[in-house]
Amino acid sequence: MIEVRWHGRGGQGAVTAAEILAHAAINEGKYAQAFPSFGPERRGAPVVAFNRFDDKPIWIRSDVYEPDVVVVLDPTLLKNVNVTEGLKSDGIIILNTSKKPFEAKERYGFKFKMATVNAMRIALDVIGIPVVNTAMLGAFLKATGILKLDSVLEAVKERFKGKAGEKNVEAVTHAYKETVLVG
């Protein structure tokens, strides 16, 4: 089982991103869960969402304490949230940052595998608003490889209809190409 924790701020779409992944995984025939961190939802406040993926039914119904993957939508969270808490030693952190991967790794002192992408730039260029969740889906796919790009794009189109769907699909594919993984 792969367990994922999403860190974002209210309004950035962490919960939506987790939901899209669960839909994509289930459409692929996998088992999955997506759920929010159950707090009062306020715009701008730190929020957490979770995913679980497996090839067999998932029974556990508890928060994720030892994630395999952590996705950080907003680099400013690193100042006051311990985003790597419980992250498995062979786990991976996926970060939205304008820094180069090695630079970011050194700056934040992470000992984990790390993937970076400038999701904010992609979101502004492609969608035109500073909502990075779909770009981070592309980064997640590139970094983990646990789901197919096509099934995630389908789930994105299902979630965002029409023009918004096209733009978000582009954000995912852009980020997928640009994401860099460092050991």
Binding site: H23, Q33, F35, P36, F38, R61
Partner: peptide
């Protein structure tokens, strides 16, 4: 059914 731990979970 339990609030949040069931209500808000997306699954199959």
């Amino acid at each position: 059914f339990d609030g949040f731990y069931v209500t808000h979970v997306i699954e199959s």
